[in-house]
């Protein structure tokens, strides 16, 4: 094996100090993706800084905010009583992801940082601009059944694989980042990036930063929330298309609405045009259909994934219908 140094730290401060010292270091949390990437030769960090013992596992409500530590496990979040009651959309999305064994070790921060599952990214014998900028995109003209239909570039059509992140973008989550210089907050929608000309960059986390926690404002969407994941098998499969839908309905009017999709873009894809359309309207099937249609503006298939152009709007309608019927 390729040798690397393994370090363990118990504070965020020392973790950040170790990171800033060495450009080729990586944090190791659950390791469910990073270890695979190392085994496949996609990444070869010289130092692995194990942060599993850094106390960032809190899940709590502080005032009107729910705070989730970056190292809380996917299972811990999905099964937390506060999350289940107040943010069921997040719990549903988490439970739709991976397998029970993976969720037990995978962390919130690691989930956000996971790389695409595009097969060309993992095979070092094939072209991939994300792995090796300038080598080309294997998925263009190749196997692209799982790939993006929104916000693609001629450099990369990969999708972000997370379910959790689809719920988080829908929930207007704030991401708290830290470096040796201090903390900063960014909106979840600004955390991940589109591929553009720099597909090697998945997100806007700076090289010397770490994710500390998430902050989510308590909302009134809990009653009418649903996460729909359409996939090739019932568990342990990435989304063909997924939809996070949350509504607040009063007097047969949609007073608040959050809608996002997964499996369709290089980042979790928020459907703001559909939200704007539905706000203040009746939660009717006709309006859902119109919202789904609006969501598809600019969508583009690449051959094998053309079916998503039909599956995506259908799934939006289905997710909204189920979310509505939950109350």
């Amino acid at each position: 094996m390729i040798n690397f140094q393994y370090l363990r730290t118990t504070t965020a401060k020392s973790a950040l100090a170790l990171l800033s010292k060495d450009k080729n270091s990586k944090f190791l949390a659950g390791g469910t993706n990073l270890i695979d990437l190392m085994k496949r030769g996609v990444t070869a960090p010289e130092k692995l800084v194990d942060i599993n013992h850094v106390p960032l596992k809190q899940i709590e409500q502080i005032g009107d905010k729910i705070v989730i530590g970056a190292l809380a496990s996917n299972t811990a979040v999905a099964e937390n009583a506060i999350i289940k009651e107040k943010l069921p959309l997040l719990a549903m999305a988490l439970n739709a992801g991976a397998s029970a064994q993976l969720r037990n070790v995978a962390t919130v921060g690691g989930n956000m940082m996971q790389r695409t599952r595009c097969g060309y990214f993992y095979d070092t014998e094939m072209p991939c601009n994300k792995r090796q900028p300038g080598s080309g995109c294997g998925a263009l003209g190749g196997f692209n059944r799982m790939h993006a239909i929104f916000g693609t570039s001629d450099k990369c059509i990969a999708v972000h694989p997370s379910d959790m992140c689809v719920a988080l973008i829908a929930l207007d989550t704030i991401v708290v980042l830290a470096s040796v210089k201090g903390e900063r907050k960014i909106s979840f929608k600004d955390f991940h990036r589109l591929a553009g000309d720099t597909p090697q960059l998945d997100n806007n986390l700076k090289a010397d930063e770490m994710i500390i926690r998430l902050e989510i404002s308590v909302n009134n969407l809990a009653k009418n929330s649903y996460y729909l994941k359409v996939r090739d098998r019932a568990s342990y499969a990435f989304a063909l298309v997924s939809v996070a839908a949350g509504m607040e309905i009063s007097n047969n009017k949609i007073t608040a609405i959050r809608l996002a999709m997964g499996g369709v873009a290089h980042k979790p894809w928020r459907l703001t045009a559909s939200e704007d359309f539905l706000k203040g309207k009746e939660p009717s099937i006709e309006n859902f259909k119109q919202a789904a249609k609006l969501a598809m503006t600019g969508a583009k298939g690449f051959g094998e994934n053309d079916f998503k152009l039909q599956m995506a709007p259908n799934s939006i309608i289905e997710a909204l219908t189920v979310a509505k019927s939950k109350a």
């Binding site: 397998s99 599952r117 097969g119 060309y120 095979d123 014998e125 094939m126 190749g142 196997f143 090739d232 098998r233 019932a234 568990s235 342990y236 499969a237 990435f238």
Partner: peptide, 17 residues
């Protein structure tokens, strides 16, 4: 070359199926 040569991408049924 095979694209889905791993257990995440080569699907066999899971219990839930």
């Amino acid at each position: 070359r095979y694209i889905n040569n791993n257990f995440a991408d080569y699907h066999v049924p899971v219990n839930a199926d």
